[in-house]
Simulated scan of single mutants.
Amino acid sequence: MNGKDDRVKGAFIGIAYGDAFGMPAEMWSRKTIQEKLGHIRSFLPGHPDNKISSGFAKGEVTDDTINSILVTEMLSENGGCVDAQVFVKKLRYWIKHSEKSSAVVGPSTAKALELIEAGIPMEEAGREGTTNGAAMKIIPIGLLAGYNMKKEINSEHLLHEVLELCRPTHYTSCAISAACAIAAGAAAAVHGEKDLRKIYEYMMGMAEKGNEYGNPVGSPSIVCRMKMARYFVELDPEKALKNIYDYVGTGISAAESIPAAAALFYMSKGDPVLCAEYAANIGGDTDTIAAMACGICGAYKGAEGFKKVDVELLERTNTISFAELTEKLLADTSYIL
């Protein structure tokens, strides 16, 4: 497996690793996490007192990983390009047949699917989606954008693909901006950029471009919050996590969780294991923040950034193969300029 293939595989591992690591504490406050779980340092099963994660097994992933897999399948079936209608069909099927989907599907996605079911065009259905549901599944698009480029990433193509995936459920300026930031981080990392500052700057640049599209809703700036979050990461880790939680926010809003995820990627210096620990203990939407941040970290470090025993746990518990996901995504990359 060459360097870029290994980084793509690392990204898929990172998505699942972060998702499962942050799952037990999902949507709990920092105080509640400390009271119920102490400091999370390893994979844990869902906590019985957590209405979202209760019933989940140790190492089990949530909708963040599942949606990323659905996006990968869609890309594989459509020559590496986004087909939003195909994705919606796949998502509907998963929701219908998964016992746990009702506990983890986000409000923007659920509402948009209801509207699409009622015959509303996709562009209209997604005009109110301001949560992190687009960004949390966008990494496979970023991986493809960064995979075959010999010199520079085709940012216009990346932007187009992000827009298409956001269209049915999250077609708002803030959600598109957020999704562009995460996709850009994955693209730059898998492309081989090692300068964390350059990756972060590219993420902010793409977030700024994305903010010009979709329904222009009133929302804090993704870019401004990323700048503020980067300031906090220079502090002691515990103080940094508290300040990101208090000032940037870690809820399901795109304007909170995406800047938080970007900051944790930067703060962990691209180490997916350390990043997962930060994310699991920060509070709020811990699994989604961890999935996004660790996905980028995985693309940065590659598959070797994870312990074999942890990868085996994730594959066994969720019946997935990271090697097969990598092969599926990269089956046809000839379209990339």
Rank of each mutant, 00 (worst) to 15 (best):
K9D: 04
K9Y: 01
F12M: 00
G18H: 03
G22W: 01
A25D: 04
E26R: 06
R30T: 10
E35M: 12
L44Q: 09
H47P: 05
H47I: 06
D49I: 06
N50V: 01
I52Y: 04
E60T: 00
D63S: 10
D63N: 08
L70E: 06
V71E: 07
T72S: 13
C81G: 14
C81R: 14
W94Q: 05
K100D: 09
G106N: 09
G106I: 07
P107I: 08
A112W: 01
A118S: 12
A135L: 08
P140C: 13
P140G: 08
I141W: 06
K150D: 15
E152L: 10
H157E: 12
L158R: 08
R167M: 14
H170C: 01
C174M: 14
A179L: 02
C180Y: 07
C180Q: 06
A183N: 03
A184K: 05
A186I: 04
M203K: 04
G214S: 12
P216H: 07
R225I: 09
L235S: 11
P237N: 11
Y245R: 02
G251S: 12
A255K: 12
E256I: 06
E256N: 09
S257P: 09
I258C: 06
I258D: 04
L264M: 15
Y266R: 04
M267N: 01
M267S: 03
C275E: 06
E277Y: 00
Y278E: 02
A279R: 00
G283D: 05
G283Y: 02
T288I: 03
I289Y: 06
A303R: 15
E304F: 09
F306I: 01
K308W: 02
E312T: 08
E312Y: 09
E315T: 01
R316C: 10
N318H: 02
T319H: 13
E324D: 15
E327L: 12
I336C: 13
L337C: 13
